[in-house]
Write a protein that binds this DNA or RNA. Structure first.
Lengths: 195, 195, 195, 195
DNA sequence: TATGAATGAGAGTTCATTCAT
DNA sequence: TATGAATGAACTCTCATTCAT
């Protein structure tokens, strides 16, 4: 429930930053622990003083990513105007997942979560929080008549997230989609929610 | 346009099957070339007689996956009834991506394509074909008045694919979504396309 | 004593040429049997129909190199004028070992002969023939008063050969020696032999 | 000019010794990195903590061989009596190259230098130093009237080195040359230099 | 003769992690 | 906390050679 009560050693943060840099550049599996240590300017042995192992570093990153979701979740929770809140969320989250580091790290964590329980645990927790927040906003909106009512709001929430994250991922490759793709996406989603 | 004129050596197919099995079980990077050879019942050296290397195996798998898309593309191309075609596609493609092997392999190939040019080339080609087919179907539908018209049909197409594939991926994890999630998805998409 | 009575299969010659090309380019150990077969445009299996193995190819090359020495040996054997013959030999052999293919192959065979008995046998036999020829010429020359007499003509012969071959080897690298180095060498050798 | 300021890890030296032993026994290409590690009593992974790779080990050996040349170079540099210095050098260097380990390693390094730039660099540097020293001694000697003057002292220097090293190489094989060959060589060289 | 699939040992190198200092 | 030497299994890939066709 409570966040880390004890302050985080600055070295640990440096290591995480280095790891993020490496994972973005080469990917999780292609990155060696040595690479991270070198990038962080830390000895190999000392890295293991701060993290139990390589996957603990990724788990920590996933944890941090989870914290970054809080602002989105706040936006969606108990909104005065669900439609306005959702539109704002779509714009903000689109901007978030369009930053390459977020898109890349996100897919890296997702794929690792598919087989690595330690990562799956953190990833699943974060994911649930976000889906719940969007779903609850949809429910609020449908109650107040702003949105069509759907049986399974979580499914719709997932779809919204998937499509935005998919967009973010696509913006990484050269076969880029038109600039106003996001606008179209936004319009489509609202259109689908219109009562 | 033309497929490989020379027949594919049966051993090559066995190796691919073995590789798929391994990649599904452990993931691409966690699978060793030895694992594939052993699974295929083939000597390590002989594997290299059939494939230039590990990534060539994955590229070949991606190629095969691409061929499997053809039936979907046929479905969407020059349809008599665009709406019917799209609905049919949504159902069929949903079933396709809900099979774990397709969902898992798909994300494996996608993530590898992010950094591996050889994989990116095959993956990008396949992806484009599918997006184009969906987008062209949307365009036909909007011309005939079945669908709302969108500026950027490819963006909508991507969204449709992303949301279905995201669903397929989610169905892998235990935190499963409700069974009728797919139905909700279907409804939402059609709702968004309704003129 | 007798040369190959049976004619050599033309394919065998092609393989040898290919092998020479490869050995020059990459060196004996860095060249694979596959490389040779590919270079020769011959199947891997068929190469083994013509040669017992990789080292048999090198041995055959060494044999051929040995045959090329015959003209030099003829030059030196029972000469009318030993001094003239030796000078002619020095010029001709200098030209021979200055051709990169001869210099490179020579050192390749020499080093392999250090540890490979099969190669050592061929190489040693060739070497002896040449040393003997030069030594006998020196002996003739000293008898007729053209040359100083040395206790050990074979040692002098070796020295003459070594210095010329060393020169050939050096001409391979960029740190090239002056163009008239060979002339200096020639002068020095004759000076050392002058009675 | 300055040697490694940081001390060399003793393990590194052990590895080099082991590598020398292996290279002498089997040759550079026939020796595996595992062989070196085993011979050194070091784990395979740890060898790579001390050397970037196999060729780095050979380069290091070449470097050490280069350092051993310093005493010869000192002998030849600014000598009070060039002739005496050269004669002393010929004797000492003959003894040096007649030790099997020096002869074998020398030719191993030479042949590797033919195609491996990393080795070529070290080898070429060492070689130049020695040639320059001999050539400068010859030049001094010719100025003081002890030696005949030659246009290209470096060419003569090369010849002297080649013939001695060739002698060393030959002393490895069973087809041994007479014991007093070296004496003959010495006499010949001085004879050729006599004014 | 000719083919190229098949073999499996072995190549050089990197891996995540531990441990003595 | 901090270091980097040490480990040995695992990595991808190549090797010379054989064999069924």
């Amino acid at each position: 429930m409570s966040k880390d009560p004890q302050p985080i050693h600055p070295r640990k943060i440096e290591i995480v930053h280095a790891a993020v840099t490496c994972f973005l550049e080469r990917g999780y599996h292609q990155t060696g622990v040595r690479d991270i240590a070198k990038q962080a300017g830390v000895s190999l042995g000392n890295l293991y003083n701060h993290f139990k192992g390589k996957e603990a570093v990724l788990a920590f990153i996933a944890e941090i990513e989870g914290e970054e979701l809080s602002e989105f979740i706040d936006l969606l929770t108990e909104p005065d105007n669900p439609q306005e809140a959702l539109e704002r969320f779509i714009d903000d989250y689109a901007a978030y997942v369009s930053r390459p580091e977020n898109a890349l790290l996100g897919v890296e964590i997702l794929t690792e979560a598919l087989r690595n329980p330690m990562i799956a645990e953190v990833f699943g927790r974060n994911r649930s929080r976000l889906i719940d927040a969007v779903a609850s906003c949809l429910r609020e909106g449908s109650k107040s008549g702003s949105f069509t009512s759907y049986d399974d709001e979580r499914a719709v929430a997932c779809m919204i997230l998937d499509s935005m994250e998919g967009h973010g991922l696509r913006s990484l490759s050269k076969n880029n989609i038109g600039e106003n793709a996001m606008r179209t996406l936004h319009a489509f989603l609202l259109n689908g929610l219109e009562p």
